[in-house]
Design a protein around this nucleic acid. Structure first.
Length: 215
DNA sequence: GCATTAACCACAG
DNA sequence: CTGTGGTTAATGC
């Protein structure tokens, strides 16, 4: 349950439940696709998903999002067509909520709208930060950033399995597949991380932090 | 000039 | 799909 939904009373919850469908996705399943028609708010109930956009040359990963969160607010309110895609990175449960009901709640319930606005602001700030980092840090820093992000924001564990291929990881930090390979194995030989296929353990957090900050 | 960074290509597991 | 090595273009001392 999102903090916005918590502000609803039981009758409103019932109304939401009647206009909501829950679906389970497996790793690699597309939750919704850029260009498709959608009139749903998409809420990630459990699991992990990536948000990505097809650019003129390649697929760019915009963000990795952990439950619980909304995946589909911005595109659905402005536009009937999804501006981006979402794909499940692991077994994932998703609720599709009728946008009309959602709009109705926003109009009627200040508390509900307030929580939604907060979530959107957070997303926006993150997007701005990501934009600056991508533009000003060099590849080592961006990769260090992402590793710390997975450790702190997603898994809360220094030991985790990358849910992405090297190619996807490259799309996330805006570099080439080869650079990802090289830098990860360099971090490995330098004793900053322990690398075993997609299994990563962060060994020297301070140094990784330093690389992330200094770019 | 020379060094560094990182993309592109190619080829092998 | 990954890992590496060589090459190359851009940028910065």
């Amino acid at each position: 349950m999102s903090s916005a939904v918590k502000s609803l009373n039981s009758k409103e919850l019932e109304e939401l439940g009647n206009n909501c469908v829950e679906i389970e996705f497996n790793k690699g399943d597309i939750i919704f696709k850029q260009g498709a028609l959608s009139s749903n708010i998409v809420y990630l109930k459990s699991g992990l998903a990536k948000i990505h956009i097809k650019g003129p040359y390649k697929e760019q990963i915009i963000s990795i999002t952990k439950a619980t969160s909304y995946l589909g607010i911005p595109s659905t309110f402005n536009d009937k067509i999804d501006e981006y895609s979402a794909t499940a990175l692991e077994k994932t449960k998703v609720c599709f909520i009728d946008a009309r009901v959602f709009k109705d709640f926003i109009n009627r319930k200040g508390g509900f709208a307030y929580e939604i606005i907060i979530e959107m602001c957070k997303n926006k700030i993150n997007a701005y930060k990501k934009c600056v980092n991508r533009a000003q840090k060099q590849v080592h820093g961006r990769i260090a950033d992402s590793l710390l992000y997975f450790y702190k924001e997603i898994y809360n564990n220094k030991k985790f399995t990358l849910p992405l291929t090297r190619h996807e990881f490259a799309g996330l930090v805006d570099t080439s597949r080869e650079s990802v390979c090289r830098i990860l194995s360099q971090f490995n030989t330098d004793g900053i991380i322990k690398l075993n296929g997609n299994k990563i353990t962060i060994v020297n957090e301070e140094l990784l932090e330093k690389i992330s900050k200094s770019g």
